[in-house]
Nucleic acid binder design. Sequence first.
DNA 1: GTCACCAATGGTATCGATACCATAGTCACT
DNA 2: AGTGACTATGGTATCGATACCATTGGTGAC
Lengths: 341, 341
Amino acid sequence: MAAKGGSPETGVIRMRDVARAAQVSTMTVSRALKDPAKVSPEVLQRVSAAVQAIGYVPNKLAGSLSSSRSNVIGLIVPTIENSLFASTIQGIADVLRRHDHQLMITDCGYSAEAEEVAIRAFLAQRVAGLILHDTTHTPAAVAMIRRSGVPVVENGTLTPRPLDMVVSYSNHDAARAMTAHLLRLGYRRIGFVSLPLAANERSRDRRRGYLAAIEEAGLPADPRLVLEMPPGLASGAEALLRLVEGGGDPDAIFFAGDVLAIGAVLECARRGWPVPGKVAIAAFDNFDLLGHLVPPVTTLKLPRLEIGRRSAEMLLDRIAGRSGTAVAIDLRFEIIHREST
Amino acid sequence: MAAKGGSPETGVIRMRDVARAAQVSTMTVSRALKDPAKVSPEVLQRVSAAVQAIGYVPNKLAGSLSSSRSNVIGLIVPTIENSLFASTIQGIADVLRRHDHQLMITDCGYSAEAEEVAIRAFLAQRVAGLILHDTTHTPAAVAMIRRSGVPVVENGTLTPRPLDMVVSYSNHDAARAMTAHLLRLGYRRIGFVSLPLAANERSRDRRRGYLAAIEEAGLPADPRLVLEMPPGLASGAEALLRLVEGGGDPDAIFFAGDVLAIGAVLECARRGWPVPGKVAIAAFDNFDLLGHLVPPVTTLKLPRLEIGRRSAEMLLDRIAGRSGTAVAIDLRFEIIHREST
DNA sequence: GTCACCAATGGTATCGATACCATAGTCACT
DNA sequence: AGTGACTATGGTATCGATACCATTGGTGAC
């Protein structure tokens, strides 16, 4: 161990030092710090003074090991560099900070194998809970989580068979609702662009929702109107061109992913195509920007921040033993109708 | 302690269990896991098999406590919900993942007091290193960090008196360079909009840079051309209107913060004002979007991702004792000239 | 006055791993 | 053969805190 051969005066301050300074036992210091009501006011005062005076910072590693209780929550997102997830992360962080918990975060790049590695690492850190954005996991990951007994919240989509708890909205219903909205507005040849479906349950849900609405309207599903594209602005622009010039003759396009819609609207502006005159455009997420574009873009408002908050709250409730039996929370969505459709 | 009164068979698997299964001591298991070269191939094989068979997940809490070495890095940013920081976080996460370290993150909302609280919490977790975006800290925070001996990287701006290490670019020089660029293009009445200066060294640096360039050009500093605005698209639009209609008669405006420039360009589009015909517009950060707007916007390309990477690398180097004496790294910036100016 | 009870405090074992040191066995070289 | 060097392994104290139980002194009820 480090201090074993260390110098006699390493400068490391332990609870014992506080105890000595306050003329009490370490137990009393421990109590004074974590349950002040159990200590007499006079002693509490002495302990606080000692902590202040010598600048004591408790060692949570030791505390957690001893109590087998940790105050760290692990979060795994597909990618950190994406403002959508950033909102959710912010929501989580807000709640955790208020409850004196810490957030450990990593990304797995849409890979279940990478997620498994991350989960193992988090369990090794003895996190008190896990928040997973993805809803597909390797069998090994599932087994590990089960064995560990650590509570989990998934929040990518309202998955039918959750690992434990779910907080999300229904990607399927949201896509269906937006498609139905476009149909209601009179559009009949509605294009649909999503991110790649492989290994992304959310994209698949969205496409199923789109197809469901089309079918419910008694319209044929035209493969020339459906596209899968990588994320990005340029990608959205390209999708627009492909659909418009691809023979499908769309009167509206629903971009169900990331910033695709923004790229498309900007491409229209560049070409002088009127929106929705030439083609109507709808998006899937409530970026501020969508409301400021010319024209403002119809989109779905999703509860990103709230998903983060509720996920953290549910986890903390469960950890504290205040667990309702609620396992799935549907936070709904909302259609924001604007001039682009 | 948890297990003290716990059931005889809690299902918790310790290193001892692996040791028993592999017929070796815990020390040998420990070595097999962290320094395989030190055990014989045959024993290594037995240990690995045992780990697999019983599903052992090491307890890093115990490991870190014992070795007083942790594999967790703490990061404090002003706000998580901001794609600028997201890039830096991504860079950090990439490097840490590769080196089997974990990232703990929190935000302090541009408040040095909140930062102090966060630092204390991280030190309590015994993080191996800290990355701070802000460069202004409370005296108490500085004292704590010093006493703890934990290595620190700051990366908000190239601060002249760093706490320890710095990885950044010069906000001052970047703003000066962009202003000089506009001057070179022939603009003479250059407006400047920044985020609030209070408690934000970066904004102050940028304004000083702008003023330096104006002065170097022998032009007067016109207070009607300088504005402080909160972040946001709407804010950028408002700033545009205030400057254009405020009597300062700008021929170009340099928006040195966040998404202000985007808001302004979109406002121009909405009003049919030609850019740069009516007024030229320059931005401060390389959002993808800026290149896709109509017109594409001149901006500064900042090494956000790289800042994250290098910060993490410097920290890991220091932790591993491979510390160069380099304390400050200037990652430079680049002007991207586009049609908006 | 005695006894039960409660509040305040301390002693000590323990959480699960690692550092240090000791030991046994192997090999090369003189 | 003897010596030193080296490898592979194990024993045990320890990291810094907390859980459990014991102890003490005071308070109120009978």
